[in-house]
Design a protein around this nucleic acid. Sequence first.
DNA 1: CGCAGCCTCAAGCTCAGCTTGAAGGAAAGA
DNA 2: TCTTTCCTTCAAGCTGAGCTTGAGGCTGCG
Lengths: 254, 254
Amino acid sequence: MATDQTSVPQNAEIDDARPQKSMTIGAVCKGLAQEFPDISISKIRYLEDQKLLNPRRTPGGYRLYSASDVVRLRTILRLQRDEFLPLRVIRQELASGRAGDPDAAVATDGHVSVVDKRKRRASVSVQGGGALYALEDVLEETRANPELVKELADYGVIKGELRGGLHYYDETEREIIRAATELARYGVGGRNLRVFRSSADREAALLQQILAPALRSRNPERRKQALEALENLAAVASHLKHLLLIRDLRKIAG
Amino acid sequence: MATDQTSVPQNAEIDDARPQKSMTIGAVCKGLAQEFPDISISKIRYLEDQKLLNPRRTPGGYRLYSASDVVRLRTILRLQRDEFLPLRVIRQELASGRAGDPDAAVATDGHVSVVDKRKRRASVSVQGGGALYALEDVLEETRANPELVKELADYGVIKGELRGGLHYYDETEREIIRAATELARYGVGGRNLRVFRSSADREAALLQQILAPALRSRNPERRKQALEALENLAAVASHLKHLLLIRDLRKIAG
DNA sequence: CGCAGCCTCAAGCTCAGCTTGAAGGAAAGA
DNA sequence: TCTTTCCTTCAAGCTGAGCTTGAGGCTGCG
C-alpha cells in the first residue's frame, strides 16, 4: 500500500493491453483446468447465470473473456476452493470490491497483470495514485455504457481530467463507473446517483471540517497523521453507512 | 468482547448465570437461541451425529452438556454462521486444536480500528438473523459510551426493539454502535451522524422504489430474487458511496 | 402415576451447485 | 459451400449438505 505509483510502469501495461486478446469459453476452461481440475464449461456458464461473471459477447452470441474476466473467475474459484465461501457471499465480496486477492499471480502460467492486483487497494485509498486512463480504455475495461458515463459526468458523479481535448479518469473514477454499471443492471439510473453524490459531498465536508486544522498544518508529521486519520475515518464512515443502509433495507424487506 | 481473556468465564451473556455443571439438550438449545435463532434440538443432535460433539450421557441415555461442550457448540455455530465453513472443515479445525476464539485479535487498546477487526464477512446481510442483545450486553461488548448510545437513539440512528420495558438491539445496530464509537474517537459526534442517517434513508427509499414491485410480489420465488438483488444492490451501492467519498477526500487531502 | 422431556432410527425435505440433453446457430477449415 | 467443431439457450435432473419430521418408545422428576 505504501508503495506509491512512481509514474511510468503504467505505460507498459496500457500499451500491452491494446490488442486485448480475449478467449472463448473453451479456451478459458482449458487454461484454468491446471489449477482447478473440476472446472467445466457448464460451470463457468453457471457462474455467469449466478451473476458472478459478465463477459462480452461476439455479435453471434459467443462469450468472450478478457484477461480481467479470467482474473475474476480465478478469484471466484479460489474463494470457493480455499475459503469455502458460498457463491452468494463471493458475489458480494466481489461487488463490494473487497476481493483484493492479495497474492495473485502465483500461477505458473502467468498472464496476470500487476495492475489488477493494485487497483483494489488504490481505489480505496485516499492518497491515490496518479495513473490516468483515457475514456476509451475505461469503457473497454468496464464495459460500461457510454451513455451512462455521459450521464455520470452530467450529474457530476465523475469529472475526469481534461488533457489535450480528451478526458482522462483515475482509478477511483474508473471504479465508480464500474459500480454504476453494476447498479444500472438493476435499474438504478445515472440520475439516481445524484443522491449518492450529494451525500458523499456532505460527508466529505464533515470530515474535512473535523480534520481541517491538522490538514492545514505546516508540520509534515502532523499532516501525515491527519491523512492517516482521514483514511481511517473514511473506512469507518463507509462501514457505518453500509450498516445504516442495511438496517433501513431490512425494514423494507419485511 | 473482553480484552482481558485470562481465566474469566467464557461468555458473560447467558451461561454465567448458570453455575450448573451440565445441562440437558433442551436447556442448551434455549440458552443459545438468543445468539443463534435457527438452532434446534434436532440440529444439535445432528451435529453430534456428524462427530462434532460428544456429550456425556446419563445412565438412561440422556445427553448431558458440560460448560465446555456448550463452548464448543457455540464455536461450531459461529464458524458456520460467520465464516461459512462446512461442517467437514469445522470438524477438522476443532480436531486440530485450532478452535480459536476469533475475538482474540483485539489486542492493544485503541489502535485497532473497527474496520480492521470487523469480521471480513458475516452478519451484514439484509436478511439478517433475529438475534437480539440487551443494551447492557451491547455496551459491554462494544465498550461504547452510554451517552453516545443515547445520542444515537435520540437522533434516530439506532432504534432498538422494546421488549418488556428494555431495549434490545440486533447485530446491525450493535455494529453501528461500534462504528459510531470509533468515529467518536476522532471527534465525530453523535449529531453529525444525522448526516449519515438521512442519506441512508434516501438511498434505501431509492432501492425500495426500484424493487418495490418484486418485493410486493406474492410469488415467493420472485420475492426471494428481489431480496437477493437487494443484498447485491446494497453491497454495490455501499462500495460506490465509499468510492465517491474517497474521491472527495482526495481533493481535500490535496 | 403422570407427563414433559428425552431417546433412536429412518425417511424426507430444501437448497446450492452443478450436469446433462435436446435443439440449433456461429466460426473455422477443407 | 460444406463439414466439423465449438458454441448458444433452456429445461430438467442429479448429488450432497444440512437439517426436519414422525413413529415408537424410554427417562426423570414432582
